[in-house]
Amino acid sequence: MKRYLLAATLVCAPVQAAADPSIPDIIDDHILPRFEALATTTDTLSHVAQETCLPASEDLRRAYGIAFDAWISASHLRFGPTEVDDRAFALAFWPDSRGATPQALAKLIADQDPIAFDPDSYADVSIAARGFYALEFLIYDDALLQQGDAQYHCTLVQTVAADIAATAAAIHRDWVEEHADVLLTPGAEALYRNDEEVLRELLKALTAGLQFTQDSRLGRPLGTFERPRPTRAEARRSGRSARHVTLSLEALHDLAGHLAAGDAALTATLDQQFADALARLAELDVPVFAGVSDPQTRFRIEVLSQAVGTIRTTVLTGLGQALGVSAGFNALDGD
């Protein structure tokens, strides 16, 4: 892979852009529907939580799953409205390498902190006690379910759900009212000076999304051969780890397809590579990657991870060049 990357980056002759993506289409077909779905499903989640805050409630868990799906399908779009006031982190504080989420929640519960009674002030608590991963602890973690008083626990579920809905609504509102126009109207004094800068932002969202799925969603539970880390799998308490890989790959495939529009050969390559990764994942049938400790299953998860890496290489080199925004040897380094 390194060899391929290098060969591509050493070519310094200007490359004619071959793909012809439509920024309005990407906004209307890829971005806005995702944030609308996030706003709608989190609003439903918050309403369901007001009705039934019992952690074992089927209705609550179903609404949680649907809203979390909507977030994962939008979670690669990390620019603009998601970054205002750290909204994306307020929805999704993961990876949580230091266990800050269970610690922050346990402290709130132990102190019976009154902030849990006020959804508007809840945004002031530790960011680790907010969002989907905090709510997962509250409705799925056996240890946390044993702690504190049931009424307080119930209130916390309702407040975290309401806070998630408020954050999602704010992101959606900003996209509709402002940020779609920001992407559509680049200019000398604007956030983006030209379409090329907008496309670079979208390409960055795609590559960062692929890297996050490979390095975090797959890499964290894989750990090392000597020391696999099944308990580091994303959202394993709710059994969603592999589902998140599927949802993210489907969303990233959609964005990649939009960006590669007009380049038939590249589109075909990307289609084939995404299909390959998704097929390998479907064959695996390990919902929370518990199999990372079993050599045979582990090998198949590693192959899946490499398949995601292959897509990323195609995107960095092929798609970057097709869009006329490929990055150089040092530009790609990140140090």
Binding site: F89, F93, P95, I127, G219, R220, R229
Partner: peptide, 16 residues
């Protein structure tokens, strides 16, 4: 920025 070699160059603590 906190990173862990098992998750490549993924940044683990941007929010904080």
């Amino acid at each position: 920025i906190e990173t862990h070699p098992e998750s490549g160059r993924t940044k683990l603590n941007i929010a904080t």
